[in-house]
Simulated assay, not measured.
Amino acid sequence: MSNMEEQGMVTTYEEMKEVIDKLGIVPLAALIPGHPSVNGLTKAENWHTDTDLDPWAWRARFPGEGLAAYGKFIRKKAILVAREWFPAYVAAAGSSQSLEERFDSGLCSREALALLQIIRDNQGIETRELRMLADMKAKEKKTAFDNAVTELQGTLDIVISGVKERHNAEGEKNGWNSTSFETAGHWMAENHIPEFKGTRDEAVAWLRNRMEGNWNPASVSWLGKVLSW
């Protein structure tokens, strides 16, 4: 796999799916020491081309097709997690407490709680509408909003469900595409992915077992430290 990383030999969406299925967890850009990333595995000239070979477009296609969960799951960086691995990853890296319980214990921000409540009622909501419903459209509230949605992804409460095109009143594409969000539980249910049946320790053991032979031992060790496994 390290040889593939150096050569940038992944060209198609199907080839990247094979990599994600094998490795289970693949960052969009270099993050885990000694571990491949989408950016490192692909050719720079294919990015942002709006073609079938554009890895930037794949990041929305994977969750949209239920093949991999996507979000800023590790150190506020974008990660793809294979559908087979995601239930164990949620059990191993998420919280056993609800966000309301964490809020009462001072373990989450008020903004994160407010946004999660809106997302629960509006699954697949896009960024602009979410900011509007949360009364966070003002420029001075953008940082708090961004921090809150990143916080919710890091705790596996929500995932990025895709990217929606923005259109003007005439229906024409207008401006940058907008990220949409849904709860992790909803994404799993919609894609017929069962929850992990077991404890956090059992989930960690499941993941480590799948990593064995496919991951660099140093990469496994790094992730374990970051996620306190």
Rank of each mutant, 00 (worst) to 15 (best):
M4G: 09
E5T: 02
E5N: 00
Q7P: 03
Q7H: 15
G8D: 05
M9K: 15
E14Y: 05
E14F: 04
M16C: 05
V19D: 01
D21K: 06
L23V: 06
I25A: 01
A29M: 12
A30Q: 12
L31H: 10
L31G: 04
G34W: 09
S37K: 02
V38R: 01
T42R: 09
A44V: 00
N46V: 04
T49D: 00
T51F: 09
L53F: 15
W56A: 05
A57C: 14
E65K: 13
E65L: 14
G66W: 05
G66R: 04
L67Y: 04
Y70E: 11
K72V: 04
F73R: 00
K76C: 03
K76H: 11
A78I: 05
I79H: 04
V81D: 01
V81I: 14
A82E: 12
A82V: 11
R83E: 14
E84I: 01
W85L: 08
F86K: 03
A88F: 07
V90Y: 01
A91Y: 04
A92C: 11
A93P: 07
G94P: 04
Q97M: 12
Q97N: 09
E100H: 05
E101K: 09
R102T: 12
F103N: 04
S105G: 14
G106P: 09
C108G: 09
S109P: 00
A112P: 06
L113R: 04
A114T: 11
L115G: 03
L116D: 05
L116I: 01
Q117A: 13
N122P: 08
G124T: 00
I125V: 06
T127W: 09
A134K: 01
D135G: 06
D135P: 01
K137F: 09
E140C: 11
T143G: 00
A144E: 13
N147R: 12
V149K: 02
L152T: 01
L152F: 11
L152W: 05
Q153F: 10
G154D: 07
T155L: 08
I158G: 14
I160W: 02
K164S: 15
K164V: 13
E165V: 02
E165P: 02
A169D: 13
A169E: 14
E170W: 15
G171L: 13
K173Q: 08
N174M: 09
S178L: 09
T179D: 05
F181V: 02
T183G: 15
A184T: 15
H186Q: 11
W187I: 15
E190T: 10
P194H: 10
P194G: 13
F196P: 01
F196Q: 03
F196E: 07
G198H: 08
T199Y: 14
D201M: 12
E202Y: 04
E202H: 01
A203K: 06
A203W: 03
V204G: 04
V204W: 15
E212F: 12
G213I: 00
G213W: 14
G213K: 11
W215D: 01
W215F: 10
W215Q: 03
S219E: 02
G224A: 05
V226Y: 12
L227M: 13
S228C: 10
W229N: 02
